[in-house]
């Protein structure tokens, strides 16, 4: 069983179980292909992002299985949608050269931009890992985490900023008795200085760094270095 423990808020991560990787052999030999299945305890989820640590996998394909929409049994012509694997992320190169280390232990995130399909009503995921190079003792992917679409972690976006000039122009047009532009710029300058001072006060560490202080409480008397 695979438990999802991460430093990120737990409610954004989908609870899932991981089946141990299955190697696909050719006779007695390793084919360089492994399959890892992930299910969501019978729940259906909307996946926004998938993250994992690569462990020397050169190429990866991610497939997903949708919840069955019809209750009828599957026929050879029309298999049940629940038993069909759809491609979520097409074959993607994870290592620049399968024989070389680069990319072998990278942290990878697959978001909507890399997904070729909408991962809605997903009941399970299948990771197909390929490593054509025989130089690696083992390969796979570790610490797989899936993030739901609703709770998908966003890169902090700046809030929509209002254009002060547009506002000024608007008010200038509506209010004829407005003081001249020189006064406005003076007020704006004062306001800006005030905001700068406030922001500087709110980030003391940044200020200290900018000033180049390296001592602690005006003391920098050291006898030994710390090992950790």
């Amino acid at each position: 069983m695979f438990s999802c423990k991460t430093s990120a808020p737990e409610d954004t991560i989908l609870r899932s179980s991981l089946r141990s990787p299955i190697s696909l052999p050719i006779g007695d030999h390793n084919s360089g292909c492994k399959v890892i299945d992930l299910n969501f305890h019978g729940a259906t989820v909307h996946i926004g992002e998938i993250s994992f640590f690569n462990n020397y996998t050169a190429y990866i394909t991610i497939k997903f299985r949708k919840r069955s929409l019809s209750g009828f049994p599957a026929t050879p012509d029309q298999p049940r949608s629940g038993s069909v694997w759809h491609t979520l992320v097409p074959k993607t190169r994870l290592m620049a050269d399968p024989h070389c280390e680069n990319g072998g232990q990278d942290f990878r995130i697959f978001g909507p931009n890399q997904m070729s399909a909408d991962a809605e009503d997903v009941t399970g995921l299948r990771f197909i890992c390929k490593q054509p190079s025989p130089h690696w003792k083992s390969f796979g992917i570790d610490e797989i985490k899936c993030y739901s679409r609703a709770d998908m972690i966003q890169t902090p976006r700046s809030s929509k900023q209002e254009d002060p000039l547009a506002e000024m122009s608007k008010s200038a047009a509506s209010n004829i008795s407005l003081p001249n532009a020189g006064n406005i710029s003076l007020y704006l300058q004062n306001l800006h200085s005030l905001s700068s001072i406030t922001s500087a006060a709110l980030t003391p560490s940044l200020t200290a760094q900018a000033l180049g202080r390296f001592d602690e409480e005006n003391c920098y008397e050291i006898n030994t270095l710390a090992y950790n």
């Binding site: 001592d215 602690e216 409480e217 003391c219 008397e221 050291i222 006898n223 030994t224 270095l225 710390a226």
Partner: peptide, 9 residues
């Protein structure tokens, strides 16, 4: 970077 404790701390 290496770290160290100052004599005060």
């Amino acid at each position: 970077p290496p770290h160290a404790y100052t004599r005060n701390n």
